[in-house]
């Protein structure tokens, strides 16, 4: 395959997200402008201007009309996807990290980092149908445990919120009361910071990637560990194929060590694993730095990766990918 290279960002990529139809790709980077691209040919559709800090995460509503972004400028912003117009800005006292729309797009979860005496927190906001009715009050605030929360997503039927972060523990919270329901087992769980979390297409299980050089597959309801995928580099990004039983892990050595070592030792590949057999299928090379973001097109026929090098690489699979046998 010949990947499409998209050089719209001037700083490292942080997050990638496809819309539900798989025709738009949203990219977030440490420069201040989230960008939307056409997912088939990589043409840039527009940028969302207004943030004043690194943008860490984004989510798009099911009808592809609203975009929410979380940024280090201590705000999370709602955008009109079509025009790039800012609809609302949620202000916080610390940098916003993860954002996720609930099923039905009526609620959004936003996490904030620990900052100047403040602990990390999970905020649940109500998203109004009409942007003029939007208010900034939180429906629920969960004062989190120690350390940054890197990802928070909604559980099945919006009953729970799943969070994971620096303390290497996956937690499931009640989204009504804010009570802690489950915690991942310390023995079988990750040993270092969890950097990425990605739900399966049906939401029944999810994948976490960690700096302990492994990725783990968990059951969403019971939080039992199903599978572990071991690599030889820290994992920064994970994605699951909605079509085949494949998982993709991206990572590489620390960005600060990139200049001191050879690109061959850096292992900046997107590694494909068989989801069930936990066996490596192959690697896709190309980035000049660690991979920070990965996303699968909802049709499972293409995926994109975003790297520390500022490039988004959009890969449309060759036909033989679909008949790979181990």
């Amino acid at each position: 395959m010949r990947p499409i290279l998209m050089k719209g960002h001037e700083r490292p990529l942080t997050f990638l997200k496809y819309n539900r139809d798989g025709d738009l790709l949203f990219s977030c980077a440490k420069d201040h402008n989230p960008t939307v691209w056409f997912a088939d040919n990589g043409e840039r559709l527009g940028t969302y201007r207004g943030h004043n800090g690194a943008v860490w995460c984004c989510d798009v509503s099911r009808d592809s009309m609203r975009l929410i972004t979380g940024s280090a400028d201590q705000t999370a912003k709602l955008w009109n996807v079509e025009t790039g117009q800012q609809l609302y800005s949620f202000n916080f006292d610390s940098p916003a990290r993860a954002v996720d729309f609930s099923v039905g797009d009526k609620l959004a979860v936003i996490t904030t980092d620990p900052f100047m005496e403040l602990t990390s927190a999970i905020h649940v906001k109500r998203i109004a149908g009409d942007p003029s009715d939007q208010v900034g009050e939180s429906v629920l605030v969960i004062r989190g445990p120690h350390g940054r929360i890197n990802r928070a997503v909604w559980g099945p039927l919006n009953m729970t919120i799943i969070s994971a972060g620096e303390d290497a523990v996956v937690r499931i919270w009640d989204s009504e009361t804010g009570k802690l329901l489950k915690e991942s087992d310390k023995e079988s769980g990750h040993k270092k910071t969890i950097t990425a979390l990605s739900k399966s297409a049906d939401g029944s299980h999810f994948l976490t990637g960690s700096l302990d050089k492994s990725a783990k597959l968990w059951d969403t309801r019971t939080l039992t560990l199903i599978k572990t995928y071991v690599t030889e580099r820290p994992v920064n990004a994970v994605a699951m194929s909605p079509l085949l039983n494949h998982v993709v892990l991206g990572g590489g050595q620390d960005a600060s060590a990139v200049t001191t070592t050879d690109h061959r030792a850096g292992k900046f590949e997107a590694k494909f694993f068989d989801k069930i057999l936990q066996e490596e299928i192959g690697g896709v090379k190309g980035h000049f730095g660690p991979i920070n973001a990965l996303a699968f097109n909802p049709d499972g026929k293409s995926f994109s990766s975003g790297g520390e090098d500022g490039y988004v690489r959009l890969h449309h699979f060759d036909p033989d990918y679909f008949n790979i046998k181990i």
Binding site: P3, I4, M6, K7, G42, R44, G283, K285
Partner: peptide, 18 residues
């Protein structure tokens, strides 16, 4: 030229022969 098609053919490199 923000969007370019890679001049390099990138393959899914198998860890061992299929």
């Amino acid at each position: 030229r923000l969007t370019m098609v890679s001049t390099e053919e990138i393959l899914l490199e198998r860890p061992r022969a299929p």
